[in-house]
Design a protein around this nucleic acid. Structure first.
Length: 315
RNA sequence: CCAGUGGUGGCCGAACGGUUAGGCGAUGGUCUGUAAAACCAUUUUGAGCAGGUUCGACUCCUGCCCACUGGA
């Protein structure tokens, strides 16, 4: 059966490094499952720091002003996986975007075939959460009452639910997208929060040194802050810095302390990365059929290798 | 040494003579076409120190300590 190896985990646990080593060992080809590295030109901030001679699929596929979503990811990734099978190699999916990974292994019960309706979204986007709740509860009272608190207050989620409810039921028969059966192994790395935070902070500092600010300047020549790509950690935190310095340059009054603002942005960025890591941990923690390894425990990599080898050698 | 200003929960920061805002952080969680997104919950009473006024003080008064600013 077609095997699919997945390496996931929160940010800065060393997924890519591990995946590269495994690709060499098992004759594999890498596919990124990273919702940010798909953007071209966002290199330092999203950490595309793997060796140049190792190709990874699904990095640099769109521009920061283009929208992208799981469904596009699913389509692209699936076709790449099939090609890799044709070559007789092992596809290795590596990344921290849990939703993207799930779209590859758990393809049942999905509403992905229901397309977004831009006009509808345009209107719903300017309504308050209260109104969205009202609309959804009118459309489907039972489903609305069944929502938990967090979903009830989440405008994004409510809009999509309304969209699904309103969609014209033409293609209700879900065309089965899975032509091939796969046998996945999901390996996920983790580490205690204090350790992760330390790694994250270190990496953040390095990215500043590597010229992140220059990269942002370059991006801003072509793109706007409101473009989807720029709503990303490592970029969005610096919006105040750029907006402030720009404003001051225009008015030319009261020199501001740029270093101070820069430091504040960097601190905010670190905090946001911490929160991201936490969210990723709670996501992966609850996935079925996942093998989680703590990278700070002894024999971790040996155990991973053992698990993979066992799976790799079965039919 | 004198004067002014100020000392609030892990941090920032309000209001107020009588149920202590809010933000950040931290922690746990939600999730199926924006996911590095968006969202939920928990962090329940602390006022520099010592007194005093008051039925009641974080809030008013006195002394001391500390910080910052200005003056000698």
């Amino acid at each position: 059966m077609n095997k699919l190896l997945i390496i996931s985990g929160p940010t800065s646990t060393g997924k890519t490094k591990l995946a590269i080593a495994l690709a060499k060992k098992f004759n594999g080809e890498l596919i990124s499952a990273d919702s940010r590295q798909i953007y071209k030109g966002m290199d330092i901030g999203t950490g595309k720091d793997h060796p140049k001679n190792i190709p990874i699929h699904l990095i640099d596929v769109i521009n920061p002003n283009q929208t992208f979503s799981v469904v596009e990811y699913q389509k692209l990734a699936k076709s790449i996986i099939e090609e890799i099978y044709k070559k007789g190699k092992l596809p290795i999916v590596v990344g921290g975007t849990g939703l993207y990974i799930n779209s590859l292994i758990d393809s049942q019960n999905q509403t992905y075939h229901i397309k977004p309706m831009p006009i509808l979204r345009f209107f719903l986007n300017r309504l308050s959460t209260k109104w969205l709740q009202k609309i959804y509860s009118i459309l489907d009272k039972k489903a609305f009452d069944g929502l938990n608190n967090s979903e009830k207050h989440n405008p994004h989620r409510l809009i999509r639910k309304i969209e699904i409810k309103l969609h014209v039921r033409t293609d209700l028969r879900v065309r089965s997208t899975t032509k091939i059966k796969i046998n996945p192994l999901h390996i996920s790395l983790t580490a205690p929060n204090p350790y992760l935070y330390q790694q994250i902070d270190k990496r953040v500092e390095n990215r500043i040194k590597d010229g992140l600010i220059k990269e942002i300047e370059k991006l801003l020549k072509k793109y706007k802050w409101s473009d989807p790509g720029l709503n990303t950690l490592a970029y969005k935190e610096f919006k105040t810095l750029f907006v402030e310095t720009h404003r001051v340059r225009l008015k030319n009054n009261k020199p501001i302390n740029e270093d101070l603002i820069l430091n504040q942005c960097v601190q905010q960025w670190k905090y946001n990365e911490h929160a991201l890591a936490r969210r990723q941990k709670t996501w992966f923690k609850n996935q079925p059929n996942i093998h989680i390894f703590n990278i700070t425990s002894t024999g971790c990599y040996k155990n991973i290798l053992y698990t993979i080898t066992k799976w790799y050698n079965t039919e």
